[in-house]
Simulated assay, not measured.
Amino acid sequence: MQKVLEINNLTKKFGAFTAVNDVSFSVEKGNVYGLLGPNGSGKSTTLGMILNVLNPTNGSWKWFGQAPDNNSLKKIGAIIESPKFYPYLTAEKNLQIVADIKEVPYAKIDEKLELVGLIARKNNKFEQYSLGMKQRLAIAGALLNDPEVLILDEPTNGLDPQGIIQIRELIQKIAEMGTTIILASHLLDEVQKVCSHVVVLKQGKMLYAGEIDNLNNSFGLFELQAENQQLLINALNQLPYFSSITEKNKHIEAKLNQEISSAELNKILFEKGVILSHLVQRKESLENQFFQLIQENK
Rank of each mutant, 00 (worst) to 15 (best):
E264A: 12
L265I: 05
L265E: 04
L265K: 01
L265P: 15
L265N: 04
K267T: 09
K267Y: 07
K267V: 00
I268D: 00
I268C: 00
I268N: 00
L269D: 03
L269T: 00
L269Q: 15
L269K: 03
L269W: 01
F270K: 10
F270Q: 14
F270Y: 13
F270A: 10
F270T: 12
E271S: 15
E271H: 05
E271D: 15
K272W: 05
K272T: 01
K272G: 01
K272N: 04
G273A: 03
G273V: 15
V274D: 03
V274I: 06
V274F: 08
V274S: 07
V274H: 06
I275Q: 13
I275D: 10
I275M: 10
I275C: 03
I275S: 15
I275E: 14
I275K: 15
L276H: 06
L276S: 04
L276G: 01
S277L: 00
S277Y: 07
S277D: 11
S277Q: 12
H278D: 06
H278E: 05
H278R: 10
H278W: 05
L279W: 04
L279N: 01
L279P: 07
L279V: 13
L279A: 08
V280A: 06
V280I: 13
V280L: 10
V280R: 08
Q281I: 02
Q281H: 03
Q281D: 00
Q281Y: 07
R282G: 07
R282H: 13
R282E: 13
K283S: 10
K283P: 03
K283F: 01
E284W: 07
E284Y: 02
E284G: 02
S285E: 08
S285A: 07
S285N: 04
S285R: 06
L286P: 12
L286Q: 09
L286W: 11
L286C: 14
L286K: 13
E287L: 06
E287V: 07
N288D: 15
N288Q: 11
N288L: 05
N288V: 09
N288A: 06
N288G: 00
N288S: 10
N288E: 15
Q289L: 11
Q289N: 11
Q289S: 13
F290C: 07
F291T: 01
F291E: 05
F291S: 08
F291D: 10
Q292F: 09
L293A: 12
L293I: 13
L293C: 08
L293F: 07
